[in-house]
């Protein structure tokens, strides 16, 4: 089976700073991979590079293939075809990811309509409204009719993140990239969003690239992890193996720290 996302020897530089060096990352269709790193590790840059969203002052070398097409040096038009259908992104801060002046319903309708147009269908009027409500039902937004008419600031952080996920799913991507999607949320909300992501990825047979600094969060949702440190991959492998027997000293220190807080909490209820 050919990989959905295949990053080979990816290096990123600005004029005088090396941001990422020789990163390899492969995701097969339906596979769930966690990208772990602390601030400055380059984990978000890797995700941006994968969807061709790098700032213009960053130069990339190596190769990135998404759904069989090259991403580096691809034209904006080619990238636009890939974004959404091949990969969609959910960001950390749902408030800034949504347009503050647009009603929730319209924000979800936009990618739904675009995706339908790409599939050669026209979606509008009551059909589109129904699709929007169905989409909101899929991400378990309560009272979808009211929320569809609301603006982003009128709903809670967890609900905003559900909206962002609905917008990503509306594109029917083969790969969902979630960049710290629960970091800005409360613990109880985080648990709900993780549960939702887990269910949606399974139901829709999507691949998942989950980017986070939080080891227990990653452990709960992915099969395989890649650990980044200062732009370089220090360790990669199945999540249970890496977390149970970390090889690199850095991974060992992260795992030890995570276990320290875990142990303090006592046995899981």
């Amino acid at each position: 089976m050919s990989a959905l996302l295949d990053i080979k020897q990816l290096s990123l530089h600005t004029e005088n700073v090396r941001l990422l060096y020789g990163v390899d990352l492969t995701i097969a269709p339906g596979e769930r991979v966690g990208l772990i790193g602390e601030s400055g590790s380059g984990k978000s840059l890797t995700a941006m590079a994968a969807t061709g969203l790098l700032p213009t002052n960053i130069r990339a070398s190596g190769s990135i293939t998404l759904a069989g097409r090259p991403v580096i040096d691809a034209s904006e038009h080619q990238l636009n075809l890939l974004r959404g259908s091949a990969a969609a992104v959910v960001f950390q801060e749902p408030l800034t990811a949504l347009d503050p002046l647009m009603r929730i319903g319209r924000q979800i309708a936009e990618p739904l309509r675009r995706r339908a147009a790409r599939d050669g269908q026209r979606l509008s009027g009551t059909e589109l409204d129904a699709a929007v409500l169905a989409m909101m039902g899929d991400v378990a937004l309560p009272d979808p009719e009211r929320i569809a008419r609301a603006y982003p600031h009128e709903i809670s952080g967890g609900q905003r993140q559900r909206v962002a996920i609905a917008m990503a799913l509306a594109c029917k991507p083969s790969l969902l990239i979630a960049d710290e999607p629960t970091t800005a949320l409360d613990v109880t909300t985080q648990a709900e969003i993780l549960c939702l992501l887990d269910r949606l990825v399974r139901e829709r047979n999507m691949a998942l690239l989950f980017i986070s600094h939080d080891l227990p969060v990653v452990a709960g949702i992915v099969d395989r992890v890649v650990v980044l440190r200062q732009g370089e991959v220090v360790e990669a492998g199945p999540v249970h193996q890496v977390f149970a027997h970390p090889q690199h000293a850095y991974t060992q220190s992260l795992v030890a720290a995570a276990h320290a807080f875990d142990t303090a909490l006592g046995a899981a209820p």
Partner: peptide, 8 residues
């Protein structure tokens, strides 16, 4: 407490 993610 139930919401806190745990290490495997």
């Amino acid at each position: 407490l139930a919401s806190v993610p745990r290490m495997p």
